[in-house]
């Protein structure tokens, strides 16, 4: 979908407004048709995490989702967004202060199950290690995930991971099916990382 940067020649202001609404209505409709409840793309901060998280909890509670499901979705949402905040390789500002990280987070419902997708660019150098961690987590059953969680709880964080492993295990424990993930080349240095979690 392309958006006209300026008023097309010959179009009246009224026609332009109609086109504008039509374009965004289509955009909104296509999100709705995919069952998307919330969709965010851009720079995220802890403040945005908090506000989106509150809206998500409120929306689910108003629609009588059961307490356990609300908690699971919320937990996966927090871990996913904090992963973007900590690991996105597209970031601006000063490290540790007023820094913003770019990514996307989408929450929706498909055939009665909630899903949360997050995406962000990562350094290509980090891809093998992330892939290895996710494949390992995907290979574990419920009891093995629990054991892995308990072990990570007691371990000092790996170098540079800022505790990423335990966050991914937490996500996997709340999921109703194995984590789905993928990478796509982004540019010379970076890859786009995508993780989908069903609850």
């Amino acid at each position: 979908m392309t958006l006209p940067a300026i008023l097309p020649s010959g179009a009246t202001n009224f026609e332009y407004r109609e086109m504008l609404a039509a374009q965004y209505a289509n955009f909104k409709r296509s999100l709705d048709e995919k069952g998307i409840i919330f969709s965010f793309s851009g720079y995220v901060s802890e403040g945005i995490l908090f506000s989106l998280g509150e809206a998500l909890r409120q929306k689910m509670t108003l629609e009588d989702a059961d307490v356990t499901t609300v908690k699971k979705v919320f937990s996966v949402f927090v871990e996913q967004v904090q992963n973007i905040i900590r690991y996105s390789a597209d970031r601006i500002g000063e490290a540790g202060r007023s820094e913003l990280s770019s990514g996307m987070v989408i929450i929706g419902m498909q055939e009665g199950d909630f899903f949360i997708v997050c995406g962000n660019v990562v350094r290509q150098d980090d891809v093998p290690r992330l892939r290895e961690r996710l494949d390992h987590i995907r290979s574990l059953d419920r009891d093995e995930l629990k054991a892995h969680y308990r072990q990570q709880l007691r371990e000092a964080p790996e170098d540079g991971s800022k505790g990423a492993t335990i966050g991914l295990i937490e996500i996997a424990r709340r999921a109703s099916s194995p984590l789905e993930y993928d990478f796509e080349e982004w540019d010379d240095q970076r890859a786009f990382f995508c993780l989908k979690v069903s609850i």
Binding site: K71, S75, V78, R154, P157, G163, I166, G167, I169, E170
Partner: peptide, 16 residues
Amino acid sequence: IYFNSSSAKALMNILE
């Protein structure tokens, strides 16, 4: 009510 994974590690540290 709820804690995230970073808080879980901190909590474990206190318990240890």
